[in-house]
Design a binder for these strands. Structure first.
Length: 317
DNA sequence: TCTGGGGTCCTAGGACCC
DNA sequence: TCTGGGGTCCTAGGACCC
């Protein structure tokens, strides 16, 4: 959508979210370029607000955007997708799609089942094979039948097909995992190169953990072979960490347990999960860990000033 | 569809404990 | 004592999302 640099992208995203934040404190960012707003308690009707918002984002950030207005998140999201998909011709869609209260099921009925959140290619194929093509088809099935076919998910499917969704707009969102991965231009079978890449990614993951004041209790390694199979391995740490060396050691251990020397690797990834807030111990003396932490903090501030690639540690750890 | 990078959530089996 | 059942944590994989 926005050409150019990652940093630019983030800056745009932030400015859009700022404009949204002026409308209501009840906003939930769901990705870098999408958010839900709860307008229930605002005096003006949704459609009018949406027009104002769209104009404000164009005027102040210089970006087109599309909006969906409905009585819940599910229908608003689908309405927005629908509006965007109907855009024809040049340029970015700039749609506003309103589904008035009471018209949810009627709006959803003719749409393909894939329009529903949580229905991807696999589920769509399965539903297709059962003769279910539209959301309306789905809504006509008995709940018990769906529950039997799809388990817990079946009940949700049944509710969603009817446009029922009582999830609130959540203003706080805790990060669950942080990861870095790379797909190589061509498959790599050089162990030194793979380990070096692994180290770089471990450092980036640890850097992002520290930036968010988080420590990880679990480290995950992801590989992809030439045949596209993608094994993962994870390990729980004795102590949550935000340290480059600890993340790298864990990732390396997993890598060495999985990689057969010389086997070509297409993708390599490192992830951190089971995140907890960092508890800084303020001791009277510096433990080795505390020293290491301070060193990394100093490096981090250099990275923030001069860019991630500039600062590298010397040899020997 | 021959496939980028970052996420979330769910399931299922095994270990371990009471 | 080899035997029941349940809870919880861990790991691996997969579907799905933008």
């Amino acid at each position: 959508m926005i050409p150019g640099h990652h940093a630019d992208y983030q800056a745009y995203s932030q400015r859009v979210m700022e404009v949204l934040g002026e409308q209501t404190a009840l906003s939930e960012q769901i990705s870098s370029d999408e958010a839900f707003l709860d307008l229930t308690d605002l005096p003006r009707p949704g459609e009018e607000l949406a027009r104002g918002l769209q104009a404000a984002i164009r005027a102040r950030v210089g970006l087109p955007c599309s909006l969906g207005v409905a009585t819940n998140k599910l229908v608003a999201k689908i309405a927005n997708d629908y509006g965007k998909s109907r855009h024809r011709g040049e340029g970015t869609p700039c749609a506003i799609t309103v589904v008035p209260p009471g018209e949810e099921t009627g709006f959803l009925a003719p749409l393909p089942v894939q329009s529903l959140w949580g229905v991807g290619p696999k589920t769509a194929d399965l539903l297709e094979s059962m003769g279910i093509h539209t959301i309306g088809d789905l809504a006509n099935l008995p709940e018990a039948y769906l529950a039997r076919r799809f388990g817990v998910n079946g009940h949700d499917l049944w509710l969603r097909a009817r446009g029922i969704d009582d999830r609130p707009v959540e203003t706080e969102h805790a990060v669950k995992s942080i990861s870095q991965e790379i797909t190589f231009d061509r498959d790599i079978s050089d162990g030194a190169r793979l380990r070096q890449t692994l180290r770089g990614m471990s450092e980036q993951v640890a850097f992002r953990l520290r930036a968010d004041n988080l420590c990880a209790g679990t480290v995950r390694l992801k590989l992809r072979w030439a045949d596209f199979t993608t094994p993962t391995r994870q390990v729980s740490l004795d102590q949550p960490t935000d340290q480059d060396g600890v993340i790298y050691a864990a990732a390396l251990g997993l890598f060495d347990g999985l990689w057969e020397t010389g086997r070509p690797v297409r993708l390599l990834g490192v992830g951190a999960s089971r995140l907890t807030p960092t508890a800084h111990q303020l001791g009277l003396w510096d433990t080795p860990n505390e020293k290491e932490r301070r060193l990394l903090e100093a490096l981090d501030s250099l990275r923030e000033k001069f860019g991630e690639r500039v600062v590298k540690r010397g040899k020997g750890r």
